[in-house]
Design a protein around this nucleic acid. Structure first.
Lengths: 349, 349
DNA sequence: CTGTTAGCGCATTCAA
DNA sequence: TTGAATGCGCTAACAG
């Protein structure tokens, strides 16, 4: 079987020679088998198998003028959010035979360069959130290849996908109000990301004009949640609170854990709710009331749309919004549901 | 942006013309700036900027005979494990200016084809676990490009990286034995994956020849954990147990939660320990005793090695093993640590 | 230091 | 149904 020594390159020519045909025919059996006579095709396939031929991707791309690859730019992969997104995206891209090239902006310095390089290797680009690029730079990319945003700044005027925030936040806040809570506070920094900003907007809206305390500034990490809890335990907050609406679950969980550990009754003294419905939300006691987002669908939808764009569909500046679901558990003040592990509506399992 | 809109393609030639130099010079300012006179370089860079030039990746790859890309094949991205791995890998690959192309084998059918295609697009391939490929197919790939394994079947004779399992499992089991537990059971299917097999081996070894109950078969998911818990609650197990060594945290957490919910005292009646140290392990009560793996380091190490291999380093069949850490919390029977959120030794922050 | 030129491996006309 | 020829955009000798 192993005819090819490790040192010689096997190309279309090698295969063509072995099969006694021209390179065009070899290319055809791979690209449009129906254009090749049955028998010839078999011969070529045999040769391909014998030689263990693998087409050179770059050569294909160069000749066919398409990379068959999508670029996905994410900040990081911490937490289940981005992983789910990536899984959704990859599955749809792979269906079309497209590969996805990943770029994590995390602690990266020369992001502009990296993105530029990536732009030369893909047919389309998906940018998550605020990628830390100037609008001008993004506009430049858009002139070259289709660009899609995820949860990004809407005003930049390019097509994007995101999950609903404001209405769900308002609904969640009203739920708390309905429990008789009156001194709510929002935990998170609205200025940090559009998601948070929108959630805060909904939070404020639910107050129907009544005065609202300033948000308690915090990044979306456990560490900040602990800090906030300490603040509350120490009575260092401007006002007393009886409910905390946290910008995401990591914050909420850390706050909740620290608060309970500090002797505060949750939800008795203070209710705590979050956003994302991470795995831990189901396991912690009291179980965390939160909002579930169809993250995987979000990724899938973006990928599907990108496929269209790559196929030549005209672009637009739409902002597609996917609906979210309230997941009521116990930390808001509701009674414990039946059995343990209160399910998450969106998780199919 | 229709299909064939006369988007003037800007290439090296366009840039060269604009800058009044040859294409070679343009290429040089990008590949080896120090070989170009300061002034010329500036002119070219200006032209590049004006034209918003982005080099065509495929053309580069074809001419330079290298893709500057790694292929990473993972089963999925559920849970923090693979995400961490991917983050570790990506960061090191990106450092070298290499991009990583992701392939999730999850529910994919024509895996062979997909991998073949990928092999034509990358300089090296990293295969996670048992990718569901024949040794022959992998051998074929190896003749073409360097291949690295992760947690894979060791007998296949290619270089691989993994985290230590047997010794840690033995240590963990002895810890349980030290608590006076005597009727331990292993939860998980050793036949399913090498990881699990090795952990089971350590579990058995810790018994020093004493009789060991058959493992309670289960996949590594919450659902299976719940099933196992129901079995125990119903007394449907062959023997009574007073400690459960679960193959991973998802299993352990589901078991623990369901058991507690069913009135069993953990660790009073039954101790439960897991493997992986996921986020939830710190938040659940009793906090879960588990084993932390340096997953991110694992990814980083593999990426670093792959860089070497791509650079031409001779391959071998080494199996690199990274050490793990016992994370003792409460579910094993140890007293609660100080404060909440018993830290995870490996997590920075 | 810079220009000329010849491929890299493949897809795709155009003829036959 | 097949083959010959052209070019995709770039890098890398090799000259100058």
């Amino acid at each position: 079987m192993a005819t090819a020594s490790p040192h010689e390159r096997v190309t279309v020519y090698t295969v063509a020679e072995r099969a006694g045909v021209s390179v065009a025919t070899v290319s055809r059996v791979l690209q449009a088998p129906h254009l090749v006579r049955e028998k010839t095709r078999a011969t070529v396939l045999q040769a391909i198998d014998d030689l263990d031929y693998v087409p050179h991707g770059a050569a294909r791309s160069l000749a066919s003028r398409q990379h068959e690859a999508h670029g996905l730019v994410l900040p990081e992969l911490g937490g289940p959010y981005y992983s789910e997104l990536l899984m959704g995206y990859e599955s749809v891209a792979a269906e079309a035979g497209h590969s996805v090239i990943l770029l994590l902006t995390d602690g990266k310095t020369s992001l502009d360069l990296q993105l530029r390089r990536m732009a030369g290797n893909v047919d389309g680009l998906v940018l998550m959130g605020d990628v830390g690029m100037s609008s001008a730079a993004i506009a430049a990319l858009r002139r070259r290849i289709p660009v899609l945003g995820l949860t990004g700044p809407s005003h930049d005027g390019y097509e994007s996908f995101s999950t609903e925030n404001t209405a769900s936040a308002e609904q969640l806040t009203r739920h708390l109000l309905g429990h008789g809570r009156s001194r709510l506070a929002f935990v998170g920094s609205p200025s940090l990301a559009r998601d948070v900003r929108e959630r805060h907007t909904g939070f404020v809206a639910a107050h129907d004009g009544a005065p609202v305390a300033d948000p308690i500034e915090a990044e979306l990490r456990e560490r900040d949640g602990r800090r906030v809890a300490e603040l509350i335990l120490a009575g260092a907050l401007d006002t007393d609170v009886d409910a905390l609406v946290c910008a995401n679950d990591e914050l909420a969980l850390a706050v909740l854990d620290r608060l309970v550990d500090g002797g505060v009754k949750v939800p008795g003294d203070i209710a705590v709710v979050g956003w994302d419905d991470v795995m831990t939300a189901r396991y912690v006691r009291p179980a965390l009331t939160t909002v579930a987002q169809p993250v995987r669908d979000l990724g899938a939808a973006a990928a599907a749309r990108m496929r269209e764009l790559i196929a030549g569909a005209p672009g637009n500046t739409h902002e597609h919004t996917l609906p979210t679901t309230l997941v009521i558990r116990e930390s808001c003040g509701c009674p414990a549901g039946q059995g343990s592990l209160h399910p998450s509506p969106d998780k199919k399992e």
